[in-house]
Design a protein around this nucleic acid. Sequence first.
DNA 1: TTAAATACTTGAATTTGTCAACGATCGCGA
DNA 2: TCGCGATCGTTGACAAATTCAAGTATTTAA
Lengths: 161, 161
Amino acid sequence: MGTITSNARGSAAESSEATRRLSSAPIADEIEFLLARARTIGIIRANQALEPLGLKVRHYVVLSLAASDLTPSQRELAEFLQLDPSQLVSTIDALEARGWVERKPSSEDRRVNVLNATPAGQQVLTQAQEAIVEAEDDSLCDLSVDEREQLRGLLKRISFR
Amino acid sequence: MGTITSNARGSAAESSEATRRLSSAPIADEIEFLLARARTIGIIRANQALEPLGLKVRHYVVLSLAASDLTPSQRELAEFLQLDPSQLVSTIDALEARGWVERKPSSEDRRVNVLNATPAGQQVLTQAQEAIVEAEDDSLCDLSVDEREQLRGLLKRISFR
DNA sequence: TTAAATACTTGAATTTGTCAACGATCGCGA
DNA sequence: TCGCGATCGTTGACAAATTCAAGTATTTAA
């Protein structure tokens, strides 16, 4: 992971000497840079939190969407998550192999697979959510409840429009 | 790249039918998810903006830090950007090959290379910054100046602490 | 009924990230 | 001063992730 990439290394938001020193650079004031850094830290923490369940963030997200009442198709998920359809295949394969989600051919269009979470999947999801909440709390511990709401609102506006 | 990964695909914040439909899922309210999505959109836009200059975001960030008066070492950059030291080697190689940065052995410790931007590098950086500002403006166009400041402040607090 | 388009899958190619090992250098303590 | 362990940058091998093109099945539209 890296601030500028997508991996997930390092011990999360550790403030090393170098980090402190370089954080006064102009780049550290750019919103895009901060977004990338915050995301990196968040993903590292989230992946750590999910590890006991044998999940990664991507699986968690797909499981969560499968468990919603939106019954998303694979194409919809690919679009929503901005992933290549083939990346979803392996993600769903992994979830399905453990009996947590099911591909269900759509009754309207037999090309389409709709995703459903199984009862076991929903149970895992509940545990995963608890782990995620804890990790998120860790990442956002400096922010008050109000500030978190503010942040959520601002991010939502730039994420969906 | 995807919301859950680090690549840079898709045409940025396009609101497809599927995206709109799935954005009502519970996951779309989680800050970590929104951070990931916002970053993805931002990186896509930024990479597009930098393409005419033959730069990617990672090069831009390193160039920007090299041009600061902090004269960072490679190790410091690796720590700050949470990258493997070897990833910095290739990034700096690329920048140095074009004459935009220089490795300068530190006078205090000859193991250490300190980075400096050349005049040509600073010139490119200026252009890159203009392109980035434009892209950022595109990403954040729904936010007022005040709101951008708010967002910057909140992100800074969760990114550095 | 056919042709084009879409959904999912597969596998190969490319890119990216991870890791261990190396030479050079530093710092510490004997 | 000498020598040992640690650090910095680099290299190259390995693993993982992303990207892309092609294939099958199915739908839609002509």
